[in-house]
Computed example of a mutant assay.
Amino acid sequence: MRFQLTEDQRVLRSGVREVLARVFGAEALWAAVDGGGGLDRGLWRELGAAGFFSLRVAEGEGGVGLGVPEAVLVFEEAGRVLLPGPLVATHLAAGVVPGAASGEVVVTAVGGGGLVEWLAEADVVVGEVGGAVALRSVDPLTPLHRVPEADSSVRPDDLYVLLTAAEQLGTAVRACEAAVQHARTREQFGRPVGAFQAVKHLCAELLVRVEMARAAVYAAAVTVDPVDIAAARLLADEAAVRGARDCLQVYGGMGFTWEADVHLCLKRAWVRAERGGSITESEELLAGELLIEAG
């Protein structure tokens, strides 16, 4: 499949990137981390005003009237800036839950493994959360609860998984960009570290994983097929998690310090990889389809 963005889609992506740079740049990211990770309601309403949540709601119902491919582009940009909050759940609730589309209402949902993000901050919760227990989240910008009695056989909605994969893709892009920038500017023994073969290989592998994940995520956005979404999820998770780890290697010791935001990419990728449920389910779904085609 050959997937090329239309001019309108390129303009949308560029516009979303500009908006997110304005409302959630580097200073806002660190302010959120240092502030304990509470949800910024003002930011949420700004996202609502920009059409982030109402993107797929019909124009006749007050929405933007776009489709899944455009939503994937928007969530990729959100992942790239590490935008916090139950973005996917609120987006999917727009047009159904009053106030969700405008950002006046925060919606969260019980995800894979009974994990619930931002439970204390949410106005509406999709799913049963009786007996939810607070967890210590590895990601400072994703507070978590677990529902012990959650039905592990219930699979998350396919769009929930796909938009999460788009977020993972964006995080992988951020890690790749950070690694390349550091390799170009950081000098060791009088040369940029990017001049060393081992670092070149790491950066090249980062880029390959990003582009493979992008192709899969974009294709799944067009087909909205469960098998394509499973493949996109697997590749996006790998690109985000391994990409952040390789970025840490490019940074060397500096990457493990608090002020370098590379660790935020890795922590976000770890948490998002759990959101779509067991990775084994995606692997089995994809393997089953491959066996059918082979037979």
Results as ranks from 00 to 15, higher is better:
182 H>Q: 10
172 A>P: 03
283 E>C: 08
138 V>E: 11
77 E>K: 13
25 G>Y: 02
18 E>N: 10
79 G>W: 03
239 A>L: 02
44 W>Y: 07
206 L>M: 06
74 V>W: 14
138 V>I: 09
220 A>W: 05
178 A>M: 10
177 E>T: 01
252 G>K: 01
193 V>S: 08
278 S>E: 09
225 D>T: 00
93 A>L: 11
37 G>Q: 01
236 A>W: 11
2 R>I: 03
82 L>M: 10
270 W>H: 12
118 W>F: 15
20 L>E: 10
32 A>G: 05
69 P>K: 03
40 D>I: 00
285 L>R: 14
37 G>E: 01
69 P>N: 05
122 A>M: 08
85 G>W: 03
224 V>F: 08
40 D>M: 00
65 G>E: 02
222 V>Q: 14
123 D>Y: 07
252 G>W: 00
54 S>Y: 10
158 D>P: 15
154 V>Y: 11
185 T>P: 02
265 C>N: 10
110 V>I: 05
141 L>Q: 07
26 A>N: 04
230 A>P: 01
193 V>D: 07
66 L>P: 00
96 V>T: 10
142 T>Y: 06
30 W>M: 14
1 M>Y: 07
255 G>M: 07
74 V>I: 13
65 G>N: 09
50 A>I: 01
151 D>V: 05
45 R>T: 00
286 L>Y: 11
65 G>C: 07
192 P>D: 13
283 E>I: 07
287 A>L: 06
8 D>Q: 13
118 W>G: 11
240 A>W: 02
71 A>E: 05
20 L>V: 09
138 V>W: 04
270 W>G: 00
138 V>T: 11
168 Q>F: 01
151 D>Q: 08
60 G>E: 13
190 G>D: 07
196 F>R: 09
120 A>F: 04
207 L>I: 04
136 R>D: 15
208 V>P: 08
211 E>M: 15
8 D>V: 04
38 G>K: 07
109 A>W: 06
112 G>C: 04
78 A>Y: 09
171 T>H: 02
44 W>D: 08
68 V>S: 01
169 L>D: 07
116 V>R: 10
11 V>K: 09
200 K>C: 11
183 A>L: 04
218 Y>N: 05
145 H>W: 14
247 C>A: 15
114 G>P: 08
237 D>F: 01
224 V>N: 06
41 R>F: 04
